[in-house]
């Protein structure tokens, strides 16, 4: 996996004090299962999270708040596996949410009671 350019890290660190801590946090000595673009994740109203299928049968999950804080890791509640979410933090920044109240990307579940 190629690390993002240093500039991205600086931007993220400036916006989110947790970012550097997350980067340095010792994760299990395990690779990210996959890199998934945010547009390929589905918004789940019930979980209030963006989700993506986990190979165990459950769902990788990440909240809007996580994304706003610069978190890139979506975890599965049933597993040790996680994925890296590829997204633009600008799309989830405070001002955007308050001013435009942007809707999550397409592919929302339809007709789920």
């Amino acid at each position: 996996m190629t690390p993002p350019p240093p500039f991205n890290h600086l931007v993220k660190a400036a916006r989110n004090p947790n970012f550097l801590r997350n980067q340095l946090r010792p994760r299990r000595d395990q690779m990210s299962y996959d890199d998934v673009e945010i547009e390929d994740m589905e918004w789940n109203e019930e979980l209030q999270a963006f989700t993506y299928p986990c190979p165990c049968g459950d769902l990788f999950q990440i909240t809007k708040e996580d994304l706003r804080l610069g978190e890139e890791i979506a975890r599965c509640p049933s597993c040790t596996l996680y994925i890296t979410v590829v997204y633009n933090i600008e799309d989830f920044s405070d001002s955007d949410f308050k001013n435009k109240n942007i809707e999550p990307p397409k592919q929302q579940p339809v007709a789920v009671a």
């Binding site: 592919q107 339809v110 007709a111 789920v112």
Partner: peptide, 15 residues
């Protein structure tokens, strides 16, 4: 089942 990606083939995105 889930049809959000058109995977049911009915010409829509309904489940």
């Amino acid at each position: 089942g889930d049809g959000s990606f058109g995977q049911l083939g009915h010409g829509d995105y309904l489940s």
